[in-house]
Design a protein around this nucleic acid. Structure first.
Length: 220
DNA sequence: CAGATCACCTGCTTGC
DNA sequence: TGCAAGCAGGTGATCT
């Protein structure tokens, strides 16, 4: 990768799903932060700095203790990604969900179905929509899917305003933490009272991931 | 063929 | 007190 990158100029930085796409004057880099990855401008190099890009006006570091993320040369198979959650219309979203029989949580996490949602946001969105994570996608009514779509837009918009959730690692390119974790209503709140009904937040395993929900407010 | 499960990796938390 | 096992999760390979 060093050969392709050397001497190139960064033209733009964009996002597609969970990928950060850095366009150069020739070719592009696709960065996926995985779970603990950080892309830092002028950060401090650590033993986990697996990518060090020296620029004319600073250093770009790719830091990833758990090594779940990656940097790839070229288009990170963007064609395999579904639509953006903030772009897809409610009609298309409804039609797509009704075609799938899988659990709604597994479907929302599927990047080929919808690009960009991770475990935290799916849990928060399903709570906001009052939908049980184990509900079958195809069995949800049009009204409930419309609520899910609205919850998705509202939750993501608010989370972006709060610059994301910093549970343990996440910081932006300037090293700043987000504070949306303060507004989580189910994620990481097992046993605590539901903001809506006061009942205890439950935690189960869905699609191999920790899944937090209110058994009273979220129906199948 | 689609959906479920496992492996990858390491820092932090939990439990004896 | 200290140490080992458990847990966290995005993705891709493997299994059912």
């Amino acid at each position: 990768m060093s050969e392709q990158v050397a001497g190139r100029r960064i033209e733009s930085v964009a996002r597609r799903g969970k990928f950060i796409v850095i366009a150069l004057d020739a070719g592009e880099l696709s960065v996926h932060l995985g779970m603990t990855g950080k892309l830092l401008v002028s950060g401090v190099e650590t033993p986990h700095s697996y990518g060090v890009f020296t620029m004319d006006d600073g250093v770009l570091l790719y830091d990833d203790p758990r090594q779940f993320g990656r940097i790839e040369w070229g288009d990170a198979r963007a064609s395999a990604l579904g639509p953006e959650p903030l772009q897809v219309g409610v009609e298309a979203f409804t039609a797509a969900l009704r075609r799938r029989k899988t659990r709604v949580k597994a479907l929302l996490l599927n990047q080929a179905f919808l690009a960009g949602l991770g475990n935290i946001y799916v849990d928060e969105i399903l709570f906001a929509a009052g939908i049980h994570p184990l509900a079958r996608a195809s069995r949800l009514s049009r009204l409930r899917i419309a609520r899910l779509h609205q919850a998705m837009v509202d939750t993501l918009t608010l989370a972006i305003e709060h610059r994301g959730s910093s549970i343990s690692d996440y910081v932006d390119a300037d090293g700043n933490r987000g504070d949306f974790q303060m507004l989580h209503r189910v994620y990481g709140r097992e046993g605590q009272p539901c903001a809506n009904c006061g009942g205890p937040i439950k935690k189960i395993l869905v699609a191999g991931r920790g899944t937090h929900f209110c058994a009273v407010c979220q129906r199948r």
